[in-house]
Simulated scan of single mutants.
Amino acid sequence: MTRAHVETIPFENVDVVLGRHRGIGLDVVGEKLITRRRGGYCYEQAGLFAAVADRLGYDVQRTVSRVQPDRGGPYPHMTLIITVENTPYLVDAEFGSGMLVPMPFENGAVVDQGGWPHRLIWEDLHELLP
């Protein structure tokens, strides 16, 4: 499901940059990304992906994050943790080219993402927070 999403819906934030963003409600996002076949940014895409996963019966947790956590500041990115058969997975289908395959949400997990290995490493969050 993640690969299909990444390969079908491109990342774009044109409406946000131009000040024409209409919100992240599922009705608005569905009309934009599905009906008009436009791309979207992380909060739009993650919201749509989460709604589909939820309707398919998966446990979905929406999380906020930073692309570069060591820089501090706000959390401008949304990721998802989706539990499948009692195993939580990190899903980030909305970041640029995106993660093609969900990652087990466990320290040290390595997953091949289209020829690029991605490793999930736990860090002490207290060191990263302002």
Score class of each variant (00 low, 15 high):
Met78Val: 07
Leu48Phe: 09
Leu80Ile: 05
Asp54Lys: 13
Arg37Ile: 07
Gly47Phe: 05
Arg38Glu: 13
Pro76Cys: 01
Met99Pro: 01
Arg37Val: 09
Ile81Thr: 02
Pro74Glu: 03
Asp59Gln: 14
Tyr58Glu: 08
Val67Gly: 10
Gly73Lys: 13
Cys42Met: 04
Thr35Ala: 15
Phe95Lys: 02
Ile81Pro: 02
Pro69Cys: 07
Val67Tyr: 12
Asp92Gln: 02
Glu85Arg: 15
Val101His: 07
Val64Lys: 14
Leu33Trp: 14
Ala93Phe: 06
Phe95Thr: 08
Leu100Trp: 06
Ala46Pro: 08
Pro76Asp: 04
Gln45Gly: 14
Gly73Thr: 14
Leu90Met: 04
Gly73Asn: 12
Asn86Trp: 00
Gly73Asp: 12
Gly57Asn: 14
Gly47Thr: 07
Cys42Thr: 04
Tyr89Pro: 02
Gly47Ile: 04
Asp54Glu: 14
Pro69Leu: 11
Phe49Asp: 10
Ala51Gly: 08
Gly96Val: 13
Phe49Lys: 09
Tyr43Trp: 09
Arg71Ser: 09
Val84Trp: 01
Leu48Thr: 13
Thr83Ser: 00
Gly39Pro: 02
Pro69Gly: 05
Leu56Lys: 11
Leu90Lys: 01
Asp59Ser: 15
Ile82Val: 03
Leu33Glu: 11
Pro74Asp: 04
Ile34Lys: 11
Leu80Ser: 04
Ile81Cys: 00
Gly47Pro: 05
Tyr89Asp: 04
Gln61Ala: 14
Ile34Gly: 08
Ala46Cys: 15
Phe49Val: 12
Val67Trp: 09
Ser65Lys: 09
Ile81Phe: 01
Cys42Phe: 03
Thr87Gly: 06
Val84Ser: 01
Arg38Leu: 08
Leu33His: 11
Val101Met: 08
Gly73Ala: 11
Met99Asn: 06
Gly47Asp: 06
Ile34Arg: 13
Tyr58Arg: 09
Leu56His: 11
Pro74Cys: 00
Gln68Met: 11
Asp70Asn: 09
Thr83Ala: 00
Tyr41Arg: 00
Val91Asn: 03
Ala51Phe: 08
Gly96Ser: 13
Glu44Asp: 10
Thr79Gln: 00
Met78Ala: 05
Arg71Gln: 14
Gln61Pro: 07
Asp54Pro: 02
Ala46Gln: 10
Arg62Trp: 08
Gly72Met: 13
Gly96Gln: 13
Ser65Pro: 02
Pro76Asn: 02
Ile82His: 01
Arg66Glu: 11
Gln68Lys: 13
His77Gln: 01
Tyr43Thr: 04
Gly57Tyr: 15
Val64Asp: 12
Thr79Ala: 01
Val84Asp: 02
Gly47Glu: 05
Val101Phe: 06
Glu94Leu: 06
Arg36Lys: 15
Pro69Lys: 03
Thr35Asn: 15
Leu100Asn: 07
Tyr58Trp: 15
Arg36His: 14
Gly73Gln: 13
Arg66Val: 10
Tyr43Gln: 08
Arg38Lys: 10
Arg55Asp: 09
Thr83Phe: 00
Arg71Ala: 11
Tyr58Ser: 05
Ile82Phe: 00
Val52Gly: 04
Val101Asn: 07
